[in-house]
Amino acid sequence: MLPYLVAVWILCWGLYGIVSSRHLFHLVLCLGVAQAATYVLLIGVGYKSGAAAPIYADISSSTPVVDPVVQALALVDIVVEATVAALLLALAMQTQKRFGTVDPDELHSLRG
């Protein structure tokens, strides 16, 4: 139960960071924090008490292991998070160049 609650906790703090952000770079990092909740949730869902990591390189093939599917999904999650962060940082960079500020509160309207 506790790991799932930790995931909710991380998500809410990440969202708080996004809402309270005064800098677009900080905002992108907070989005990363919020997304980290999904890693905790995924890995938590796949855990089996007393099971080993799903790598049979040095354990016998009858050893119980945790779910490898959610671990593969966590990898996909990380890749997507990295690309989203990079794309958002590029947009933040252009925002700075164009409007001279990266404080979301000072960006009142989007201009084309």
């Binding site: 139960m1 855990y47 089996k48 779910d67 490898p68």
Partner: peptide
């Protein structure tokens, strides 16, 4: 509950 993985996909691949 945490630690009680319900399956079935992970079990099949295991």
């Amino acid at each position: 509950g945490f630690g009680h993985y319900p399956g079935p996909y992970g079990d099949l691949i295991e």
